[in-house]
Each structure stands twice: as C-alpha cells, then as structure tokens.
C-alpha cells in the first residue's frame, strides 16, 4: 500500500508563554515538535506498511527548519520525505495550504492512503485533512481512533461527540487520526543516523516543483486573512477567601447566595 503522511512542525504550545507587558507570544526558546497527532498518523502508516507492505512517504510544508521534522519521520521509519519549502508558501491559510499539499501529493503519483493528524496544536482548525481530500476528490474519514487497512479499503472507527461510528471507505482515502489510535514509536538510533546523513531520502520542493503559481499559495493565495490578534483577558474582580476551611466554606456559600446562585437544587 502506498501511504502518504502529512506532518506539520509546530511550536510546542505547552511551552508558549505570553509576555505580560506586551501581550505578545514569546516564541523564543520554544521547542519545535512534530504536531502530536501527526506522529500518530505516521505510526498508523508504519504499522500498515508492516502489515501490507508498500511505502510511507512523508510530506511537510514549512520553513527550512522543518527539515528536522521530516528527518525525524525518516528516523521513525518513513521511506521518503518531501519538504515543501519556499518563501512563496509562507503565510498560507488552510485553502492555500491544501492547494500546496494537494499538488505535492499529485506530483507523487499513485497512492492508496493519506494519513494526517486531526488537527495541529498551533491552529486547531482540523481543516487541512478534509480540504486535501476534496482537492484530490477522494473519500475522507476524520476523527479516526481505530483503523484497519486492507487491500482496496479501510475500515475505521470514528469518534463522535457521543459514541462512535464504524465506517468503511474504498482506497484511495484520506484519514485524519486522533491520539487514541496508537502509541507512536520512538526513532531508532540507526534510523536517526541514517536520516541525518546527507544521503537520506529527503527532497525539497518549491512552488515550481509542484506546479503552482505564487499567487495561488502562501499569503497571496489565501482566502482568509488575519486582521487583528490580541491576548484574551479575563477581567474579574477576585475576592480572596481566607481562614480555616470551615470559615471559607461558610463565606463562599453566603457570597454565592448573595449572587443568587442556587446550589443544591
């Protein structure tokens, strides 16, 4: 089975801090990681390759530093990595990103399965998977937490808000996965040394390589634009309650009663 895995390098948002003075994100010193759910997508691809044979190709769009992410995927076991890197790709919304990723998948040629994380932790949009599927006019399965691939089809369990559904789709199909799907393996030492060698199978593709015009990708090709960013601010007057637990309990219940909050009904 020819498998393509879409991965994104993201800042580790749990490390992201806000400058209390300016309200800006402090991105300095924040580690870049493979988007967590994308690692689960890669793990799924590697497991399917182990079962059915075939190849796993990783595609990542990002700045030159994203080479690290592609190499990490190779170290985990991917056969080939494609880094879509071009200044023209910068600032893309999901429309422009799915154009670039879709064109890159097309350039790869034949594929049976595309895997991706449900969403990236820096944007949380969950739009790239479905938009690439639509670009390629293939089936999509999102929110997948169990996956069984066979020749010609996949059977998946999709998480719904309440419960789940078991669903079947013919290949080619795009699947976005949840962390519950599997436990990603750690790279091997041998894999790391091979992936970081200058001969490792990573290609860097630019806009011309995937056959797009600069107007169709990146910021220029985006349909949505950010007009303002700001730090969310909770403006509440905090009242501190002090004393013994019993005193605090009595004070709190009385205060809530005065606010007409009815407890215990």
């Amino acid at each position: 089975m020819n498998i393509v895995v879409l991965v994104k390098q993201v800042p580790n948002t749990t490390d992201v801090k806000i400058d209390p003075k300016t309200g800006n994100l402090i991105r300095e010193g924040v580690a870049s990681i493979i988007n967590p759910e994308d690692r689960h997508g890669l793990e799924a691809g590697l497991q399917i390759r182990e079962k059915l044979g075939g190849t796993v190709t990783v595609i990542s769009m990002g700045p030159p530093q994203a080479m690290e992410t592609v190499c990490e995927c190779l170290a985990m076991g991917a056969d080939r990595g494609i880094l879509l890197s071009d200044r023209a790709f910068a600032g893309a919304d999901t429309w422009a990103t799915s154009t670039a990723l879709g064109m890159a998948v097309r350039k790869l040629g034949e594929f049976d399965l595309i895997l991706a994380g449900r969403q990236a932790i820096d944007g949380d949009t969950a739009q790239i998977g479905p938009q690439v599927a639509e670009f390629l006019r293939i089936a999509q399965l999102t929110y997948v937490r169990r996956l069984d691939a066979q020749e010609g089809k996949v059977i998946a369990e999709r998480a719904l808000e309440d419960g789940c559904e078991h669903i079947e789709a013919p290949t080619p199909v795009l699947v976005t996965v949840l962390g519950a799907l599997n436990k990603p393996r750690h790279p091997t030492v041998e894999g790391i040394l091979a992936a970081t060698s200058e001969r490792s199978p990573v290609e860097v593709w630019n806009a011309a390589d995937i056959g797009v015009k600069v107007q169709d990708v990146g910021l220029a090709g985006s349909l949505t634009h950010v007009v303002r960013t700001f730090t969310p601010k909770g403006a509440r007057d905090t009242r501190r309650l002090e004393g013994s637990a019993t005193v605090i309990a009595a004070e709190l219940l009385e205060a809530l009663r005065q606010k007409e909050i009815r407890l215990g009904e």
Binding site: P64, M67, C71, T196, V202, E203, V204
Partner: peptide, 8 residues
C-alpha cells in the same frame, strides 16, 4: 535545489 541541511 537541496541545500537545506539535515539536523546533526
């Protein structure tokens, strides 16, 4: 066009 270095 493959000038982006690999990580060490």
């Amino acid at each position: 066009m493959n000038k982006i270095p690999r990580p060490t």
